[in-house]
């Protein structure tokens, strides 16, 4: 069982890793360095911290988009080339495909995070570099698995990417949306519709990752306990990853494939 899953993982990984991926990574890193240098010219004080934080955040969003696109395109290709039908004729359980995809996501995220670790270690020292790389790895895992769920359900790359980005932004902007809804309740003198919206959004927030699931950019400016921050994020991401895996399995087992 394990060897089959590993074999499937290696096969899927070969489809993702290419020279184009490394070229794209190199271009992204170079662009981030150039943008950082420009910002350094503008900053009057704290230039080093501002540039580190900016480059880290820029790379974070680039890597999130890249990971999402790669996972979604790889699974979409499996749909298009009727790969699932072929795989299911083999003595493979459906969960093994999900397990192999999980390993692919973990390895891909590691691959994306390694150059970020090197760059951030140069900018801010090894401790911050390590924290940022691990925190970003967890964040990328979470978003990529969300992307996997989206592509398994929606089967189209644009839909899956937009859906995953929408959830990502919803989680990141949850504070602002809650503020807007609270303000709307206040301005409407507590109207039933506004209250209902606030309740619905509150319920939706239970299903999206909380802000603690993401890498904390403020570490570039304040001395914080990096290990404790990372541990908090790890538990938050672990719970959400298990939940996403369960949803992926439910969705994948429910799918009908025409042989």
């Amino acid at each position: 069982m394990t060897s089959q899953t590993i074999a499937l993982f290696r096969y899927l990984m070969l489809g993702i890793v290419s020279r184009r991926l490394f070229s794209l990574l190199a271009i992204l890193l170079l662009a981030a360095i150039l943008c950082g240098s420009f910002l350094q010219e503008l900053a009057i004080i704290n230039g080093a911290a501002i540039v580190s934080a900016f480059v880290a955040d820029l790379l974070r969003y680039c890597m999130v988009l890249l990971a999402l696109l790669m996972v979604a395109s790889a699974v979409a290709e499996d749909y298009e080339s009727r790969q699932f039908e072929r795989l299911l004729t083999m003595p493979l359980a459906r969960w093994q495909y999900i397990a192999a995809q999980f390993l692919v996501i973990a390895s891909l995220c590691l691959l994306l995070v390694l150059p970020v670790f090197l760059l951030m270690s140069i900018y801010s020292g090894v401790a911050i570099g390590c924290y940022w790389a691990l925190a970003l790895w967890l964040e990328l895992m979470l978003i990529s698995l969300l992307g996997l769920l989206a592509i398994l359900s929606l089967e189209k790359v644009p839909l899956a990417v937009f859906f995953s980005l929408a959830i990502y932004l919803l989680a990141k902007l949850s504070g602002l949306i809650s503020l807007m809804l609270a303000e709307s309740v206040r301005l409407s003198d507590g109207s039933a519709a506004s209250r209902a919206m606030e309740l619905i959004f509150g319920a939706i927030l239970y299903l999206v990752p909380d802000t603690g699931s993401f890498a904390q950019n403020n570490v570039f400016f304040h001395a914080v306990d990096l290990f404790a921050t990372l541990a908090d994020q790890f538990f938050s991401v672990a719970v959400y990853l298990l939940f996403l895996l369960a949803v992926c399995l439910v969705d994948f087992y429910r799918k009908e494939f025409n042989f």
């Binding site: 501002i50 504070g175 802000t211 570039f220 304040h222």
Partner: peptide, 10 residues
């Protein structure tokens, strides 16, 4: 702070 996407300092 809400628009900062979690990076308030930056």
């Amino acid at each position: 702070r809400g628009l900062a996407l979690g990076s308030e300092q930056l």
